[in-house]
């Protein structure tokens, strides 16, 4: 803390209130408050993740009944990657596409709520959150009705010639990506709105005063200032989309299966824990590494 900071804090002139200086009892109270929550995460998040990593190295020749032996079988990873490469790649492509689409759709919506909604702002926000309260699965199944082969959407697309006369939407990548985009769109809109709403409209006026062009002002002021929202929104969309298998299961066919389907099936149907765990670990590592790289590039490290 520099002297200037101290001076400012003392006079209470900064917007931020001065940090409360912890009292003597502050140390132990802090640990007590943290303890139950962190313990919960250690036992039910960290320990399982370690166990998952261990399971991925078990001998895949074992079975659930006979028990697995720890053989440090790194070969499981080669098996998993070679067998399910297609589903891995598809997951990343679908998730990236859905995230991109959600950003494309979510930005104008968040922008309109933040700057154009006026007194309807709260109502619009409610509308964004409202779908949350209808079950995820029920909503996804509704897309089955919307995209049904003889439904209005398909008929319309056929009549304008976008879709071939025997073409369909259901059971295609289009349906799966539509579902993914739809399901995670609120996760994109809310953080975007939060960061857009913080922008002082006077900054845009100042920008227009200096650049004299609405689009340039948008590009040079609004977009950079909304970056934290863009980063948070894309992460909150990408992470669940990459691991999702509800959309590919309900709206697609095995030809649209993602890595989530594989993990679910290998764990729960084939009961091949080591290979399933290897898939899981790969997914986690890929997602976490991508997230960290992305966060570092975007330069917003204070997400938590």
């Amino acid at each position: 803390m520099s002297v200037a900071d101290v001076g400012e804090t003392l006079e209470g002139r900064t917007g931020k209130p001065p940090r409360k200086r912890a009292r003597r009892s502050g140390w132990s109270t802090g640990y007590l408050l943290l303890l139950p929550g962190l313990l919960w995460l250690l036992v039910f998040f960290v320990a399982p993740t370690i166990q998952l990593a261990a399971t991925s190295l078990y001998d895949s020749a074992g079975s659930l009944e006979a028990g697995y032996a720890m053989t440090w079988s790194f070969g499981n990873y080669l098996d998993a990657l070679s067998t399910y490469r297609e589903q891995f790649v598809r997951s990343l492509i679908y998730a990236t596409t859905a995230t991109g689409l959600a950003l494309l759709l979510g930005y104008p919506l968040a922008y309109a709520i933040a700057f154009k909604a006026g007194r309807f702002k709260n109502l619009m926000l409610m509308l964004v959150i409202a779908p949350f309260f209808t079950s995820f699965l029920v909503r996804t199944l509704a897309w089955k009705s919307i995209l049904a082969d003889n439904g209005a959407v398909v008929e319309t697309l056929k009549s304008v010639g976008i879709l071939a006369p025997d073409g369909r939407l259901l059971a295609t990548s289009v349906a799966v990506i539509t579902g993914l985009t739809y399901n995670f769109l609120p996760f994109m809109v809310l953080p975007l709105y939060a960061s857009l709403e913080k922008i002082d409209p006077r900054l845009l006026e100042a920008g227009k005063d200096l650049y004299a062009n609405g689009f340039t002002a948008f590009r040079k002021i609004t977009v950079p200032l909304s970056m934290p929202g863009v980063v948070a929104g894309t992460l909150l969309t990408f992470i669940p989309a990459a691991g999702d298998y509800i959309n590919s299961e309900l709206l697609g066919t095995p030809r649209q299966y993602m890595i989530g389907n594989v993990i679910d099936n290998t764990f729960l149907v084939q009961l091949n824990y080591p290979i399933a765990a290897a898939c899981s670990v790969v997914l986690m590592v890929v997602v976490v590494v991508m997230v960290l790289l992305y966060v570092r590039r975007a330069g917003t490290e204070d997400l938590v």
Binding site: A4, G7, L10, E11, G12
Partner: peptide, 8 residues
Amino acid sequence: PSGCGKTT
């Protein structure tokens, strides 16, 4: 003036 210690 600001920072002179009066608020403290």
